[in-house]
């Protein structure tokens, strides 16, 4: 017994020693991750402290839950959460099903060159940078010279200043998001469809199925596992709307519906230097996200056999 155990131990050591090169290969990434990702994770303790840059993270005095309480009781709490959730859920409702439609359509195209052209042109907007995208939105929607009000004018619709309407903000955000990424997001579904066994289609044709029925009874069920996985990922991040685009599209007129958690914490933290308060908001947001991801994953596990971990 004792002998086998010591043998086991020494062989683990031997394996580590023999593979020292592998650990060396990971070393740069480990150092970078510890310094710039794990140290900030430890740095979240400033959410519970009165952080003063001169005293450092360790030296600052403890403040308990003071900053969390301040956020929960501030009028921005309800406002930022509401805006974040509206934009996020609206985004999921629109941009989750659309790529599935696109992939199903793409799978039905037999004209090879057109299919290729269709894919290339729907993927293209994905590569526009966020800054350029927001610049385009602002230019296109400008009431005096934008192309969208002009095109709407042709068919007799008066749009007014869309960027200045708080109630239009979420729609502008979501539909431009769909325009930019729907093609790209469909790639995964197209990949899943290309792995469908052709025998299934042949069998369906023998049974007299038409194209619509083949799509309905073969393609859609085949996509379901991929859809569940991607849906878990999306709902897990329901409380985190990308900062970059919202921040660029914000202006004084639409701020009532465009101030989300991440833009608020950026302003509090880096523009007004309320580090601890801002860190508390960020930590609260991250914890909620993490819990959401775990619970959605649990639900998916119970319902079927698809889950992330």
């Amino acid at each position: 017994m004792a002998q086998t155990r010591s043998l086991g131990e020494s062989s683990t050591w031997a394996r580590i020693k023999r593979n020292w090169g592998l650990y060396l290969l990971m070393l740069p990434a480990i150092i970078i991750f510890i310094c710039f990702t794990y140290m900030p994770m430890y740095g979240v303790v400033i959410a519970f402290k009165n952080f003063k840059p001169a005293q450092g993270i360790m030296g600052s005095a403890w403040a308990g839950f003071k900053y969390f309480e301040r956020y929960f009781s501030s009028y921005m709490f309800g406002n930022t959460i509401k805006n974040t959730l509206i934009i996020s859920i609206y985004t999921i409702l629109v941009t989750f099903p659309l790529p599935v439609f696109l992939a199903l359509m793409c799978n039905q195209m037999y004209a090879k060159r057109f299919k290729k052209f269709f894919q290339v042109s729907t993927y293209l907007p994905h590569f526009i940078s966020t800054v350029v995208m927001c610049g385009m939105i602002i230019l296109f929607l400008s009431p005096s010279s934008g192309v969208i009000p002009k095109l709407c004018g042709l068919v007799g619709i008066q749009t007014g200043d869309l960027m200045g309407k708080a109630e239009a903000f979420s729609s502008i955000y979501v539909w431009t998001e769909a325009w930019q990424h729907v093609g790209w997001d469909s790639i995964m579904y197209i990949a899943a469809l290309s792995s469908v066994d052709p025998c299934l289609y042949e069998a369906a044709v023998v049974d007299g199925a038409n194209k619509w029925q083949k799509m309905r009874f073969i393609d859609i069920p085949m996509l379901l596992p991929t859809m569940v996985t991607l849906f878990i990922l999306r709902t897990g991040s329901v409380m985190s709307v990308g900062f970059e685009k919202v921040y660029l599209l914000q202006n004084d007129l639409n701020i009532a519906s465009s101030e989300i958690i991440s833009t608020y914490l950026y302003k509090m933290g880096l523009q007004s230097n309320q580090y601890s308060y801002s860190a508390a908001i960020g930590l609260f947001n991250n914890v909620v996200n993490f819990i959401l991801l775990l619970s959605v994953n649990q639900i998916a596990k119970k319902m079927g056999d698809t889950s992330l971990f």
Binding site: F36, P40, I46, L265
Partner: peptide, 13 residues
């Protein structure tokens, strides 16, 4: 799935 967030990262850097 989890990170320190903007402010702690800024302070460390």
């Amino acid at each position: 799935f989890f990170g320190g967030g903007l402010i702690p990262t800024f302070i460390i850097l």
